[in-house]
Computed example of a mutant assay.
Amino acid sequence: MCFGGDSSDPGAFSGSPAGLTAALERAGHSVLRVNTALPSALERIAGRARWLHPELCRVHTYIADARLSKLEYDAVVQIGTDFLVCTAAPTVTYDDMTVAQHVRLRDDWFARYPRRAQLAWQVRQMRAFTNADRCCVLSQWAAESVVQDYQQPAEKVCVIGLGGNHIIEAPADRDWSKPRYLIIAKNWRRKNVPLVVETFAEVKRRFPSASLDVVGPYIGGPQPGVVFHGSLDLNKLSDRRRVEELLRSATCYVMPSKHEASALAFVEAGAAGIPSIGTTSGGVRELIGPGGTVVDPTDSFSLLREMIRLADPRTASTLGALAADHARWYTWDATAQRLLNVIEEVARGRGRSSNECSTS
C-alpha cells in the first residue's frame, strides 16, 4: 500500500487509506504500508514551498522505489497519483478525482499552486495512470475524467467506490415529525456552511419546530433553531458519541459543497438512514443515489426547495430507507473485495513487465 503519509492514520486522506487497509487485513491479506513522504517535519516545510511541488513529488517517487525494492509483495496499490511507481507486480492506482477536475472546478486549494506545479502534476498523473495496470477510482465522475482527460482505455478504469469510517445503524425509532438538519464540515467555506445556515432561516420561518446542527469550526451568530457544536474530535469517545447522537436524531443531512469529489459524510449519513442534499459539482450524486438529491451550490432557491421538501416526514423517512439500502454498496469491506477482484484479474495474465513503465 503506497501512500504519501501514514496509511494507518484515520485522519489522512479522509481516512480512506486506513479504511481500505483495515478491510484488506480483515479479508486475510498482509498489507505492507509504504509511506512515500519525508519525515513529517521536513514534509511540512517542503509542502509550504508550493513552487517546489514537482521536486518534492520526485522525492516521493524515489522513496517509493527505494522502499519497494526492499520488500517482497504480490501487488501494489498506489493511493494518490502525485508520485510514480514502477514495478513488475500488478499495480493499481486509487483516486477520488483528477488534476484536470481540480482545474475545471477552480479549486481554491489547488489554485494556490503555481502554474508550473499544476502542469507538472497533471503530466505526472498521466504517467501514473499509464504505468498502472488498472486505474481505480471512487466514482463514475472521476472515471470519466481518467478516460477523457488522460486518454486511458475505458476497460482499464474501474469504479470500486469507498466506505464510511464512522458507521452507525439506522435507528428504528427516529422521530421524523420534526425536521432536524445536520451538516458536519471541517472545511466550512468549501462545504458551503454559511449558505446552509442562511437558507435554514427561511425553513425555520415555515417550520417553527425545525432545527439545524452544525459541526465544525464555523461559528455563526445567534440564530433561532441553529446549534453550533464547534469541532468534534472523533478520536475522543465523548465527541464521537455526540456525533453518533446527532446522526441518530437527524432527519436530513445537508451539504451543498461548492465542489465535492466523494465525501464520506454522505456514505455515513446514508448508513444511518438519513436522506441527503448534496451538490451537483463533483461525484457525490453517486454516493447519495436514490436516498436524497443534489442542488446547484450557487442556487439558494434550489437548496431551500429541497430542504422544504425533506421537511415532510413521509418524504424524509422514505428517502432515508432508500439511503440506508444504497449505503450497503459503500463499505470498506465491499470496496476492498472489488479492489482484490481487479488485482486478481490483472494477475491472471494481464500484467506487464517493469520496462513498460516510466518514472521520468
Rank of each mutant, 00 (worst) to 15 (best):
V342A: 04
R352C: 02
V284N: 01
Y113V: 07
R205C: 08
P153C: 05
S257Q: 07
L24E: 01
A265I: 07
C86P: 01
Q118D: 02
I288M: 05
W176D: 09
P17W: 01
T298C: 12
C136V: 11
P224A: 15
T298S: 14
Q152M: 15
R124D: 01
E244Y: 09
L195I: 14
D107T: 05
D6W: 04
R115H: 15
L138N: 04
A41N: 13
M255N: 05
S14P: 05
Q152C: 12
T251E: 06
S354T: 13
G289T: 04
R116Q: 14
H259G: 05
R242V: 14
R115E: 15
L105Q: 12
D213I: 06
I277L: 09
A172R: 12
A201N: 07
A117P: 03
L310D: 03
R189C: 07
V267N: 02
Q152V: 13
S300W: 08
V123D: 14
R112L: 13
I63L: 08
S238K: 14
G349C: 12
P222E: 15
D96P: 09
S317R: 12
A100Q: 04
R115C: 15
G320K: 03
L195K: 14
V214T: 02
L322V: 05
C86Q: 08
A75H: 08
T87L: 07
R116V: 14
I343P: 03
W329P: 01
F83M: 03
R48A: 11
T335Q: 06
C158F: 13
G292T: 02
G349F: 13
H326W: 14
A185L: 09
N192T: 04
S257R: 05
D175N: 12
V196E: 01
T331A: 03
E155N: 13
Q101Y: 10
A347N: 11
E144G: 12
V146G: 08
G270A: 08
Y181K: 11
H29N: 07
A324S: 10
V157W: 03
